[in-house]
Design a protein around this nucleic acid. Structure first.
Length: 329
DNA sequence: TATGAGCGG
């Protein structure tokens, strides 16, 4: 029996960011990117651990009763579709109740779990949230990723759970990783991943390195490819390309070389601004995240045309993101 | 500016 939840979409987490005026200001601030207009930057105090808000007592081991109100797999398709999200950068005080409460208003949370160390019982800093459907999970992923978490000064770090319930990890082969530096402060894992995925289908994932204490980006990250050829292409083609508000600087990942030999000298990654053509390094495709559903491709084009000649704009159906391609910059 | 560590029940 299928109980179909109201699939009206996830309400943007406005209430959690009451100090953010994320109203439509498309006409203003021509220098700002859309995702910056829609979610202003919060600047946490550096070097200061986020204190647990009152009402959220640290609980190394929560009462199991809390979790049983939301039995897993209690809704929708028995299929093996992945409908869980991985959530990272959790503070010690963020327990299952916290996670469930965050998304309770969607009415689409099936269960939540914070992973704890078997010996110490202390949280490992990540967890899983299962939703009633993959669509529900995707809505949350699109809406919440990268925006500030309630009662915290850090941003949501969400991603698809790698495994569906009861499935085993499948070895998808080696990873070919690149280092990406000079990232803007608002670039999330997802944004970084999609920026590359739009060009290279073999992209498996991306990670922006953050300060665990503050949750703030350290300004660099990594992108993993399944295909070595695409990795090598990205090294040159994506160097200097904009992600959010800044041009990326790409280099080889320092460790974890999946293939033997062949170290890549840094000099070869300098963008020479040379060879035009279909792989013209001057071509730039920008990923635009956190879009309001009402934004059209034309509007997006107008906004971005202030920064250069836009040759193509694409907003995939049912997504909260888009791609803007410049002729050059 | 610069080279993490993030997948359970």
């Amino acid at each position: 029996m299928m109980q179909q939840p109201p699939a009206g979409g996830v309400a943007p987490p406005q209430s959690m960011a009451a100090d953010q005026s994320q109203t439509q200001q498309y006409q203003q601030q021509p220098q700002s990117q859309p995702w910056m207009m829609m979610q202003q930057q919060q600047q946490p105090q550096a070097g200061q651990p986020v204190p647990p808000p009152s009402g959220w007592a640290p609980q190394p081991v929560p009462p199991p009763s809390q979790m049983q109100q939301y039995p897993a797999g209690s809704a929708t398709a028995g299929s093996s579709e992945i409908r869980s999200l991985w959530i990272g950068d959790l503070q010690q005080w963020m327990d299952e109740n916290y996670l469930i409460n965050i998304f309770a208003h969607t009415g689409e949370v099936a269960s939540a779990k914070v992973i704890r160390n078997k010996q110490t019982g202390l949280p490992e800093g990540y967890g899983f949230i299962e939703f009633v459907s993959r669509a529900a999970a995707e809505r949350v992923l699109q809406s919440y990723n990268g925006v500030p978490m309630p009662n915290s000064e850090q941003n949501f770090r969400l991603n698809w759970a790698a495994l569906g319930y009861g499935e085993k990890r499948q070895d998808e082969g080696p990873d070919y990783t690149i280092f990406v530096g000079d990232l803007a402060a608002d670039v999330s894992d997802y944004m970084l991943q999609e920026t590359f995925k739009a060009v290279y289908p073999s992209v498996k994932g991306a990670k922006v390195v953050t300060d665990r204490t503050t949750g703030r980006s350290k300004g660099y990250g990594f992108v993993r490819f399944g295909d070595e050829t695409e990795q090598l292409r990205a090294m040159t083609e994506m160097n200097g390309i904009y992600c959010s508000t800044r041009a990326m600087r790409i280099g080889p990942a320092a460790n974890k070389k999946p293939v033997t030999g062949q170290q890549y000298p840094k000099a070869s990654y300098q963008n020479t601004q040379g060879n035009p053509g279909e792989n013209d390094p001057n071509n730039t495709t920008i990923f635009v995240g956190g879009l309001d559903p009402s934004v059209s491709e034309d509007q997006l084009k107008q906004i971005f045309s202030q920064l250069g000649e836009v040759v193509h704009v694409k907003i995939p159906a049912n997504k909260h993101c888009g791609f803007v391609q410049y002729a050059n910059r």
